[in-house]
Design a protein around this nucleic acid. Structure first.
Length: 346
DNA sequence: AAGTCGGGGCG
DNA sequence: CGCCCAGACTT
């Protein structure tokens, strides 16, 4: 058997039963593909089930509020995916009368849908011959063909897309695409793959040249920056609390948090004055304060390390913008904040 | 072409 | 601790 037939055969035997593999409905395929971007199946699966249950059709998703969509997405990360998902749902429901785009070219017009996702939906839902290239495909192809072009270089992206397009089974593109991805995820794994039981080990260049652990090649890691966050947990006698939407672009856009003041170093209890509250709502108001955590809560993201303090501030009366403490959990919030809310238990 | 955007899991 | 994950978008 050749490369593509071996992969499809391996897939027919080893594929996992997953809910999005029991349908060709483009709405469900789209949902699964967005959720699974840069996300492992195990992490994304419960979110997929929750979205299908909460929003059975694209109209249900379109008619939801962005806040409700973000709340359901809470904890999954890369929140622009949720915002774009909602934007595209409204576009499909309202501009396209609910008729899902059915070609690679038209799918690309959806916000949050790039080359990979357009290819995945086009092939899986509509059987279009469009080759997917995700992290799994980069790994399988770079190893099997012994290609050391960096997968995240402009040249590498072109080269691997062309190679994948030349390999796809034009008779069964849906099966081929899912086969090579599943093969990469389960057999041709990043770390210590068992090449002894690999069905295509006889033709694998990386195995012959002992380069399995050296491929694929990826350029430069992202630089990690360190930040010091101070969250002001402001509570009043009526059990109201300040909780704000992050409106600026960047991390956690449109999610909610306690008023935040960044500092240049990790603050101790006696450094409270460094927060400079003179220009805030707390100016000329009597309050008591306490530092909740002496040791920073460290929240590590892929490109930022956040060293975080929570300051508990009690005042007589907060302004009208405050919300009730018991409604806190209704709002979408970063894991860092929702974890604190659980732990503090108000 | 390089940065940005989350959070979890693994060795 | 660094790397990876069914990547896309902005600058």
């Amino acid at each position: 058997m050749n490369f593509k037939k071996e992969l499809i055969n391996w897939y027919s035997i080893n594929k996992r039963e997953l809910p999005w593999r029991a349908t060709q409905n483009p709405y469900y395929i789209w949902l699964s593909e967005i959720i699974l971007q840069q996300t492992q199946v195990k992490q994304g699966l419960p979110y997929y089930n929750a979205f299908v249950k909460q929003y059975p059709s694209v109209f249900d998703l379109a008619n939801a509020s962005e806040e409700a969509v973000l709340k359901l997405w809470q904890g999954l990360g890369y929140y622009s995916r949720a915002r774009n998902l909602h934007t595209s749902a409204k576009y499909i429901a309202n501009e396209l009368n609910g008729v899902f785009p059915n070609t690679y070219k038209d799918l690309l017009k959806l916000k949050g849908v790039g080359d990979y996702t357009a290819s995945a939906i086009a092939s899986i839902s509509f059987n279009e011959v469009a080759a997917v290239v995700d992290g799994n495909v980069y790994r399988v192809l770079s190893r099997y063909f012994g290609i050391n072009t960096p997968i995240n270089s402009t040249e590498g992206i072109k080269e691997f897309k062309a190679l994948a397009s030349s390999l796809i089974d034009t008779e069964q593109p849906a099966s081929y695409n899912q086969a090579i991805m599943e093969f990469g995820a389960r057999q041709c794994k990043p770390q210590s793959p068992d090449c002894n039981i690999c069905p295509i080990n006889d033709g694998c260049i990386a195995l012959q040249k002992n380069l399995v652990n050296a491929l694929p090649v990826k350029l430069k890691k992202t630089k990690v920056t360190t930040k010091y966050f101070n969250f002001l947990v402001c509570i009043d006698k009526d059990k109201n609390i300040l909780f704000e939407k992050r409106k600026q672009k960047g991390i956690w856009q449109n999610l909610y948090q306690f008023p935040l003041i960044e500092s240049k170093k990790s603050l101790a209890a006696e450094d409270f004055h460094l927060l400079n509250l003179e220009s805030t709502v707390l100016d000329s108001v009597d309050f008591d304060y306490a530092l909740y955590n002496e040791a920073d809560k460290v929240h590590k993201l892929s490109h930022q390390h956040l060293y975080t303090k929570f300051w508990i501030i009690e005042v007589e009366q907060l302004p009208e913008t405050a919300i009730s403490i018991k409604s806190l959990k209704k709002y979408p919030a970063p894991v860092l904040i929702s974890s604190f809310i659980e732990e503090f238990n108000f």
